[in-house]
Design a protein around this nucleic acid. Structure first.
Length: 641
RNA sequence: GGGCUCGUAGCUCAGCAUGGAUAGAGCGAACGCCUCCUAAGCGUUAGGUCGAGGGUUCGAAUCCCUCCGGGCCCGCCA
């Protein structure tokens, strides 16, 4: 029994009342009213009808409520009352609460995870960071949005494949190779214990860009290196690949720290080498999408025509016959959707933090090839998580794919999100005064950004201290483990809680907060609930699913139960609307409902045995609901903190 | 110039898809609450012409139009 069933019941009641009262059956809304005093659920159908029928909504609501009342017998609804045009419903909590909580307690593993995905295959791409630097806070947003989405899809029983695109032949790689080969940077970081990705990004990449400005001769080397990388045979190319893989390994460590999961690494050189492009190009030509220009500024090029006059044509193939970057994106997207024959072989790349195997594309038909029986592409839905600067390009790709036929723009979806910028105070730490402005964009080239590992470390340090003051008896190992989980929860929640199309103004100090609307707040509510259970008659409640839940009549108890009952609807909606934020909001509301209950209602000190047991059952059910919610957010529920 | 996007309390943001009852949180500020299940908590107070104007509607933060302000994108670079 969850809110879903209650909503369905109210809808049925209203629908049948419409028929019996002689009204047309129209679409209407059933939702929670803004105030507790108005009841548990409320229906706006009378307003909608009054528009059609020119009849006062209050009158319609009264008639409908009268038609509904005789049907309430045996339902979970206690009363239906007209109020200012609404029909307000009161639930029979004495029946509803036991049904809800028993259901939760009997399904601790999968409560709240609906089957709405029906095993549909979803391909998600996220992270895809140039392998020449460490992750900064902007990349964290991408990783966390992507991984949360993957978890949402998994929780709604989708088949999921998570891709991470590795641009191993781009200019940014060439830049650091130039640094090592032509500007004298040692390949080993001079600072001890410095992660290789930090060294490449913070030192080599920033400094080589400074050198370019002063010395155009070094800048010239970049073209040479890029060419060698593309051709793939030379010593430089081998060296570039070695550097790429070393940086990638360090980047993955940071992603794994945040508990991100991947299934496959797609290397750009493999896409280029696979000749996928020529197949996709044929497809574009035969579908009339690619056009050869015989005059104008793009004379001699193959282009995709822009929409009407709004957009410029996009060049696909230059007049010298070489393909532009979009010639990598289009075939890759087509591969994701399964529109072209899969040219790749796959090999095990490494084991991940969660014990799963991460695969990588390869072009070599070795023993580890297709025999592994994995199919990574051919998603019924493909979601690509890239920041909003790429919206225009992603739209072109989406349009092109939908014209190829099998696709349709709804199948290829660009999940766009806004930038992470630095707050005025944080910019000051880089010695930059931004004046009246609210924020400042980060710059990898100039070294103005906050590294992901730095944030995680700072959070860890702070959390460690906090946990230690509360639990002085814990071992160092325990403290570190808990501090890890708290730091992950703080950053994951922080990056997910606000709308995707809102710029995050990252402030170091603020991001270190562990209070209020934060991840640790959620974990804290959980820890409190587990402590109650720990101190209770555990042997009696273990495995028990039926308590005298009808004895839970306190306002904060009812509110908590109602919140618990929403989970599966929230998860389903988050999947349907690709909205990870809604899950974070829910988690916060759920934790808040528990904290309120915790303040108002004693559990262990309750004298009435039956009531105390029922409350313990409620606390346990809450724990299950919150733990399952946190799991989808990638946050670990802690027993102690 | 064109396209996309944001604008709600001092600050950071929910609410807008599907219009509805007194616009909600957190941070910050002031003041309270641990002889009682973890105070990473809870409460009280202060703080709002929902960017501006117009329109649609019985009803607009929510839908439409115009304007203002911030941001991003518009290369035979990737």
């Amino acid at each position: 029994m969850t809110l879903r069933i209650l909503l369905h019941e109210v809808r049925e009641l209203v629908s049948s009342a419409l028929t019996s009262a002689g009204y047309p059956v129209i679409e209407f809304d059933v939702s929670e009213p803004p105030q507790h005093a108005f009841g548990d659920l409320s229906c706006n159908v009378a307003f909608l009808l009054s528009k059609h029928l020119k009849k006062p909504p209050t009158k319609i609501a009264t008639e409908l409520a009268e038609a509904i009342r005789p049907r309430l017998q045996g339902s979970y609804i206690l009363s239906a009352d007209p109020a200012g045009g609404y029909i307000n419903f009161r639930a029979n909590h004495a029946r509803l609460s036991p049904a809800t909580l028993s259901h939760v307690l009997s399904n601790p593993e999968n409560y709240g995870y609906p089957n709405s995905g029906q095993d549909m295959h979803i391909v998600i791409e996220h992270t895809s960071i140039n392998p020449n630097k460490a992750l900064h806070v902007g990349h964290m947003r991408n990783v966390i949005i992507g991984d949360t989405l993957y978890r949402i899809m998994r929780a709604t029983n989708h088949r999921t494949t998570v891709l991470n695109y590795i641009d191993d032949s781009g200019v940014q790689i060439a830049d650091i190779v130039v640094g090592f080969k032509f500007a004298g940077f040692p390949v080993a970081p001079p600072t001890k214990n410095q992660k290789f990705d930090h060294y490449c990004g913070d030192e080599v990449y920033v400094k080589i860009n400074e050198i370019y400005e002063k010395d155009p001769q070094v800048a010239e080397k970049r073209k040479l290196v890029l060419k060698e990388i593309e051709e793939g045979k030379s010593e430089i190319a081998r060296f570039a690949m070695e550097i790429t893989l070393r940086v990638l390994q360090e980047q993955l460590k940071t992603c794994w720290r945040m508990k991100a999961h991947y299934d496959l690494l797609n290397f750009e050189t493999h896409i280029v080498g696979s000749k996928l492009w020529s197949k996709a190009f044929e497809l574009l030509k035969s579908n009339g999408i690619a056009k050869y220009e015989t005059e104008g500024k793009n004379k001699g090029c193959w282009v995709i025509e822009g929409k009407e006059k709004e957009e410029e044509d996009k060049v696909l193939v230059r007049s010298d016959g070489t393909a532009t970057y979009i010639a990598k994106d289009i075939p890759y997207a087509a591969w994701k959707l399964g529109l072209v024959e899969d040219p790749f072989y796959y090999q095990e790349y490494t084991k991940q933090w969660d014990g799963s195997t991460l695969y990588a594309t390869t072009l070599a038909d070795g023993s580890n090839s297709k025999s592994i029986g994995k199919k990574f592409n051919g998603g019924q839905r493909v979601i690509t998580i890239i920041d909003s600067r790429q919206s225009r390009l992603q739209r072109i790709i989406s349009q092109v794919l939908s014209k190829i036929g099998v696709g349709g723009s709804h199948k290829y979806f660009h999940l766009s999100y806004e930038a992470v910028t630095l707050s005025s105070d944080t910019a000051k730490e880089f010695g930059i005064d931004i004046g009246d402005r609210q924020f400042m964009h980060m710059s990898g080239r100039k070294g103005i950004y906050v590294n992901a590992d730095y944030v995680l470390d700072a959070l860890h340090t702070k959390a460690y201290k906090e946990v230690k003051t509360r639990n002085p008896d814990f071992s160092d190992q325990q403290l570190n483990k808990i501090a890890d989980e708290i730091s992950i929860s703080a950053i994951r929640y922080n990056m997910i809680k606000q709308d995707l199309d809102k710029i995050i103004t990252f402030d170091i100090k603020e991001s270190l907060s562990l209070e209020g609307d934060t991840g640790p707040y959620l974990q804290y509510a959980y820890a409190r609930s587990q402590r109650i259970l720990e101190k209770s008659e555990q042997s009696i409640i273990a495995g028990k699913t039926d308590f005298a839940f009808d004895r839970l009549t306190n306002e904060s108890e009812i509110a908590l139960i109602k919140e618990i009952a929403k989970l599966d609807l929230v998860v389903e909606n988050a999947a349907k609307s690709l909205c990870p934020k809604s899950l974070a909001r829910y988690a916060y509301n759920l934790a808040m409902a528990f904290n309120l209950f915790y303040e108002k209602v004693p559990v262990l000190r309750e004298q009435d045995n039956e009531v105390r047991m029922a409350r313990l059952g409620l606390v346990k059910a809450f724990g299950i609901a919150l733990k399952n919610t946190l799991e989808v957010l990638g946050i670990t529920a802690l027993d102690r903190m």
